[in-house]
Design a protein around this nucleic acid. Structure first.
Length: 316
DNA sequence: AAGTCGTGCAACCGCAAGAAA
DNA sequence: CTTTCTTGCGGTTGCACGACT
């Protein structure tokens, strides 16, 4: 593209932030809000690039961030979600209010991953590693035998994994029944609430829900809405939606109460990209909504988007 | 006391998605 | 439709600090 990324420009300071810099950034964001990070450094009087400012704000300065040790509940949640989703830190973080994806990623890499390996479990699949693979993870036979004596812990991990898998397959079963024209809503934390959550940004008097939504519709049925869920998949594909269908679906979404939106479906959140692709391939489907927008007066809008090919997860 | 090693975490980097022009 | 810009994500790096020798 030939453009200069902000952090490539010389003259920007790098490294740890000083308290003075933190104060400047904090004062600026409190006064003007965040967004357009590129212009923030100049306006805030900082010699940092916008990206660095954004990161500092998101990972450290934001007032609702919880720091310190992870509770056993949080630990359990991370294990379960990781077993299902893999390294989808942002999605995992969405299930742990006040925790940042960076913090969860660090916690995983420095703590949970090592515990798994010590127990002889594959950190990717959470399943037992074959004995001759132990050295791949730098675990010798001595250590293995030491850890396998603690079968309780291994069993706990296995339970967490199975629980997560069961949850995932249940969601798929529900999803396959998408020809039934009902909304499937399950509890999800409050990230869809247009308050001060991580997933929202406020811009031009509009609250954007940054979590994508999938809205599957079966054209053979009178009701356009069969499943309604959220995901964060990327998109590509070829699904044409007529203006009529779009209007019907938009009306349907607009008629949802805020609290219904707030408890949006979890199904695709925890299903793998592959299973979603498989699911959508087999259906008379449908199309994808990228986001719901709450305007000031509470009116909801939706934005269209094409079907996902999961580029990020496939490429990395 | 000095040097080395291991660990935890903040910060950086490259890339991609999505919005805006 | 294309280009440009901003934002977000996940992998990786490097520094600070404590434990150990």
């Amino acid at each position: 593209m030939g453009k200069m990324r902000c952090c490539e420009k010389v003259g920007f300071k790098k490294g740890p932030w000083t308290p003075e810099e933190d104060n400047k950034l904090l004062a600026y964001v409190e006064k003007h809000g965040h967004g357009n990070w590129r212009s923030v450094p100049a306006k805030a009087g900082l010699e940092r690039c916008g990206k660095s400012c954004r990161l500092r704000w998101i990972n450290y300065l934001k007032p609702d961030i919880k720091r310190g040790n992870f509770s056993s509940d949080e630990d359990h949640t991370i294990i379960q979600l990781h077993a299902l989703l893999g390294n989808k830190w942002s999605i995992i973080a969405a299930h742990l209010p006040q925790r940042t994806d960076n913090e969860i990623k660090n916690y995983w890499n420095t703590n949970i991953k090592k515990r798994l390996i010590r127990m002889g479990l594959d950190p990717l699949t959470h399943k037992p590693i074959k004995r001759n693979n132990f050295e791949d993870y730098g675990v010798g036979h001595h250590e293995q035998s030491k850890d396998t004596t603690n079968m309780d812990h291994v069993a706990q991990w296995e339970n967490a994994r199975l629980e997560a898998e069961a949850r995932g397959s249940m969601l798929q079963v529900e999803s396959h029944s998408s020809h039934h024209p009902q909304l499937m809503l399950t509890k999800i934390p409050t990230q869809l609430s247009p308050s001060s959550s991580d997933s929202l940004s406020i811009k031009h008097n509009t609250v954007y829900n940054m979590y994508d939504l999938i809205l599957a519709t079966n054209h053979d049925l009178p009701s356009p809405v069969s499943t309604f869920s959220r995901t964060s998949l990327s998109s590509e594909g070829d699904f044409n939606v007529s203006e009529t269908s779009f209007q019907i679906i938009q009306d349907r979404v607009s008629n949802l109460q805020d609290d219904e939106i707030t408890v949006a479906v979890e199904a695709f959140t925890t299903a793998s990209c592959e299973s979603i692709q498989e699911l959508l391939r087999g259906s008379t489907l449908t199309w994808v909504i990228s986001k719901v927008i709450w305007k000031e007066n509470g009116v909801k809008e939706i934005k269209r988007r094409k079907f996902p090919e999961c580029r990020r997860s496939a490429g990395k």
